[in-house]
Amino acid sequence: MPQTVKGVISRSKGADVEVVDVVVPDPGPGEAVVKIETCGVCHTDLHYREGGINDDYPFLLGHEAAGYVEAVGEGVTDVAPGDFVILNWRAVCGQCRACAKGKPWYCFNTANATQKMTLTDGTELTPALGIGAFIEKTLVASGQCTKVPEADAAAVGLLGCGVMAGFGAAVNTGGVGRGDSVAVIGCGGVGNAAIAGALVAGATTIIAVDVSDAKLEQAKHFGATHTVNSRSTDAVEAIRSLTGGNGADVVVEAVGRPETYEQAFYARDLAGTVVLVGVPTPDQQVTLPMIDIFGRGGALKSSWYGDCLPSRDFPMLVELYKQGRFDLDAFVTERIGLGDIEAAFDKMHAGEVLRSVVEL
C-alpha cells in the first residue's frame, strides 16, 4: 500500500519551503523505498528552490542522504530490505557507450524511479536530482542505493553529493598523487573535501584559497598546509611563490565563477591540471587567450560528481572514515529537523556552515 509521510517541498521560485504530506508508492520493478535517516542541506537544493535548475515545480528537495532499504520491487537483486545505504544520483546503466568503454562514472543513461511521488491531491513532485530525500521515506531506482558498512548516517550520507564531488575532483578527476602540489580555490564543503582528498592521496603542498579567514582556518583541519586570502593577496602569485615559482600540479576550482577559473588557469604549473567542480550559472562565460591555452599545455577538466563510481568509492570512503583517515564528522556543522531547512538555507548563504544535516 502507498504510504503518506512528511516531506519538504518547494512550490514556486523563491518561496519558503514547506513541510507537507507526500504519498510514496510501493516500489515497482527496479525500484526501492528507503527510510531516510539523514539528509544534508546542499547548495543544489537552494538552486532548485530558486529556479536555477529548471521550473518543474513543485520540487521534493533533498538528495545527500543515507538510510535503510525498507522494500524493493520486482527484479531488484543489488540491495535488500534492511541494507544500510547511501543514495546516489548517478545510478549507472552498464550498457551505454560510456559504460561499454569502461568509464561508467560518465554513464549517459543513469536511472531514476519510474513512478512519481505525489502530494495528497495527486500533484506529481519532481525529486531533486532524482532522489528527493528531505522526507521520511523516498522512492528511488534501486541502482541509486549504494550499500555501505554501517556508520553515523549524518557523516557518511554527505558522500551522496558534496563531499564525494570534492574528494573525487582531486583524486579521480585531478589524479592527485604522492608529492604533488595542489591548490583549492573556494573552501566550502566541496573545496574542503578536495583538500581532504588531496591529503589522503599523498599531496605534500596543499594550498587553500578563499576570501574568508574563518574558512581558511577551517581548511587547515582538512589538510591545507598553506592558506591564501584572495581578498587581500593575489592568489596566482601566492600559489606560484608557494610552489617554487612554478604553480601547482593540480588546481581545483570549487567556486564556479569566471574570475576564479581564470585564477586556477594561471596558478597551475606548465602541463598542470585545472579541475572545475564549482557549478557555474548558465550565463557565465570565461575568456582566455588561445595562445595561453596552447602554450601552457596540461589539461582543463570538469568534474561530474567527482567522476565517482558509487559502488566503488562510497564503501572505500566509509572505511577510511571508520579508520580515522577521513574526517567526515568535521563536515557536519549542525543537526536539524525537517522544519529547520529554510533557516539552514540562510546559514548556508551567509557562509556560516559547511553542512546542516537533517535527522529524521
Rank of each mutant, 00 (worst) to 15 (best):
T233K: 12
D283K: 10
T227F: 08
V236R: 09
Q284W: 11
F222I: 09
I239C: 02
V275Q: 05
A238R: 06
M290S: 15
R257T: 11
M290E: 13
V279A: 13
S232P: 08
T243L: 00
G223Y: 04
T243F: 01
I239T: 01
D283G: 10
T273G: 01
V255M: 05
S241W: 07
P289V: 12
I239G: 01
Y266R: 14
V279I: 15
V277T: 11
D249S: 06
E259G: 06
L288S: 10
E237T: 14
G272C: 05
V252L: 02
E237D: 15
P282L: 00
G272M: 05
A248N: 00
G247H: 02
A224P: 03
G223N: 04
A267I: 11
L242D: 02
G278D: 07
G256P: 03
Q263H: 11
L270K: 15
V275F: 03
V274I: 14
V251S: 03
P258G: 07
N246E: 12
V255W: 12
P282M: 03
P282H: 07
F265T: 06
E259P: 08
G272V: 04
R240T: 04
V255I: 12
D283R: 09
Y266M: 11
L242Y: 00
T260L: 10
A235C: 06
D283S: 12
S232A: 08
T273V: 11
Y266D: 11
G272E: 05
V236F: 05
H226Y: 04
L242K: 00
L276T: 14
A235N: 08
G247I: 01
G272F: 07
V252S: 03
N229R: 07
G223R: 05
A264C: 09
A238T: 09
A248T: 02
H221A: 15
A235G: 05
G244W: 00
V277W: 11
G247V: 01
I239P: 02
V236C: 06
R240K: 14
V274N: 11
P258Y: 07
V274T: 13
V228D: 09
G244L: 01
S241C: 04
G244M: 02
G256F: 06
T260S: 08
T233C: 10
T225E: 03
S241E: 12
T281A: 13
A248L: 00
R268K: 13
V279K: 10
P280S: 03
N229Q: 06
V286M: 15
R257Y: 11
P282T: 03
Q285G: 10
S230Y: 15
P289C: 11
S230M: 15
A248C: 00
A238N: 04
V250Y: 02
A248I: 02
T225H: 04
A224D: 07
D234S: 06
D249L: 02
H226V: 04
P282I: 00
Y266A: 08
A224K: 05
Y266W: 15
G278P: 05
A248F: 01
D249A: 08
P289H: 13
H221M: 10
V274S: 10
A267C: 04
A238V: 09
L276R: 13
T287H: 14
A235T: 03
V255N: 04
T227R: 06
A254P: 01
G278K: 06
T233M: 12
